[in-house]
C-alpha cells in the first residue's frame, strides 16, 4: 500500500486538511464580504432615473390649508388626482424629507413628522410594496431622526426609516455637478421618489425648499456645491426628477436658517402644497417667506432650463378646510 516514492496520506488527514482549507477560505470570504468597500470596485457611475409619471391636464400644483397637517396632505394630493396616479401597487417608493438637523418639530428645521407619516400612509394604501424614508443628515443622524419625530412617526405609519448609518453611497452620473460626488444607492433602486422639503430661510440661496433638498441624497463633497449655489441647485433640479414634490409649510423657518433654533424665527402657516412641477413648488414656498420667485437665482435658472414654471397663478389654492 505505502509506496516510499509516493508517500500517501490517510483518509482522515485528507479530510482534516480539506476541511481546514475550506474553513480558512470561508473565513477569508467572510472577511472580504464584511470589510470590502463596494464604492472602490463599482465600475460605472449609475445614471439617475426619471421618476416622473406622465400627467395630463391636472393643475401642476395644489395647496391646502388647515390646522391638521395630515388632512392638508390628503387634500393637496387628492387635488392632483390622488396618490393612485403617482404610486402603483407593487412599486417601491422613496420619500426624501429634510431631516438635516437635531431639532424638534416646533423649531421647523426639519420636515413635519405628521406630513411625512401621512404621505407614508397614502403610499401604503395605494399598494406600495416598500416605502423608504431616507436622508443624509448634517447633524448626528440618530439624533436628527429621533428629535425630528420622523423616525417614530414614519416608522409607525409603515415606512422603512433609513438614516446615514444604514444608507449606502454609490457613484452616480451627476454631469453638471462637482466631481466625485456620490448618491444614496436606495434612491436608484426606488420606482418612485417623493421629495418632502420644509420651507426655510437660507443665507446663500435665499430660501431652501425642494430642489435644494437634494443635497441630502449626496455624499461627502456636497459642501463644495455652495460655491455656485444657484447653478448647483438648478442642476440638482435637472438631475433629480421626483414623482411628486410635497412642500411642508406647516411651520416655516423665516430667519437663522437652515438650522434655526429660536421659536421666534418660526411662523405657523399650516399649509401643504403638492406639485408635479418642482420649480413651481419652490416658487410657492419662496412666496411664503416673502420672496418674489423671480429674484431668486436658482429659480430663474431652473425656469430658463425648462424644468418648470415659477408662475404662482398655476397653483390651485384649495383654501382652509
Amino acid at each position: 500500500m505505502s509506496d516510499p516514492e509516493r508517500p500517501g496520506i490517510t483518509r482522515r488527514e485528507a479530510v482534516l486538511r480539506l476541511a481546514s482549507t475550506a474553513a480558512a477560505a470561508a473565513a477569508v470570504g467572510v472577511g472580504v464580504a464584511v470589510f470590502h468597500d463596494r464604492r472602490l470596485v463599482t465600475a460605472a457611475a449609475a445614471a439617475i432615473p426619471d421618476w416622473r409619471v406622465p400627467i395630463a391636464s391636472r393643475p401642476p400644483a395644489a395647496a391646502a390649508r388647515g390646522a391638521d397637517p395630515a388632512a392638508n396632505v390628503r387634500r393637496a394630493v387628492a387635488a392632483l388626482g390622488g396618490v393612485g396616479r403617482f404610486v402603483r401597487p407593487g412599486e417601491s417608493v422613496l420619500i426624501k424629507p429634510n431631516v438635516g438637523w437635531d431639532r424638534l418639530p416646533e423649531q421647523a428645521a426639519d420636515t413635519d413628522p405628521a406630513v411625512v407619516a401621512e404621505l407614508v400612509r397614502l403610499c401604503r394604501d395605494a399598494g406600495a410594496r416598500r416605502v423608504v424614508v431616507a436622508d443624509l443628515s448634517c447633524n448626528d443622524p440618530r439624533r436628527c431622526f429621533a428629535s425630528s419625530g420622523i423616525a417614530a412617526a414614519a416608522g409607525a405609519a409603515g415606512a422603512e426609516v433609513l438614516d446615514a448609518r444604514r444608507l449606502r453611497l454609490t457613484p452616480a452620473a451627476l454631469a453638471g455637478l462637482a466631481q466625485g460626488l456620490e448618491v444614496v444607492e436606495e434612491l436608484l433602486q426606488a420606482d418612485r421618489v417623493i421629495n418632502v422639503p420644509v420651507v426655510k430661510h437660507h443665507s446663500l440661496s435665499g430660501v431652501t425648499i425642494g430642489m435644494k433638498n437634494w443635497f441630502g441624497v449626496l455624499g461627502p463633497g456636497r459642501n463644495r456645491l455652495h460655491q455656485e449655489i444657484d447653478r448647483a441647485v438648478a442642476e440638482l433640479g435637472a438631475t433629480f426628477r421626483p414623482t411628486l414634490t410635497l412642500v411642508d409649510a406647516t411651520r416655516i423657518l423665516a430667519a437663522n436658517g437652515p438650522v434655526g433654533g429660536s421659536l421666534a424665527d418660526v411662523r405657523a402657516v399650516g399649509a401643504v402644497l403638492a406639485a408635479t412641477d418642482p420649480v413651481l413648488a419652490d416658487a410657492w414656498g419662496a412666496s411664503l417667506l416673502g420672496r418674489r420667485p423671480a429674484t431668486l437665482g436658482f429659480i430663474a435658472q431652473a425656469e430658463q432650463r425648462g424644468l418648470g414654471r415659477a408662475d404662482l397663478a398655476l397653483v390651485q389654492e384649495l383654501g382652509t378646510a
Binding site: 438637523w101 455652495h226 460655491q227 437663522n256 437652515p258 433654533g261 429660536s262
Partner: peptide
C-alpha cells in the same frame, strides 16, 4: 473671492 457659507449654515447657536 468664491462664495461659500457652509460654516454659517451649520452653526447651531441662536442667533448664529
Amino acid at each position: 473671492q468664491t462664495p461659500c457659507i457652509v460654516c454659517e449654515e451649520m452653526c447651531p447657536t441662536d442667533p448664529k
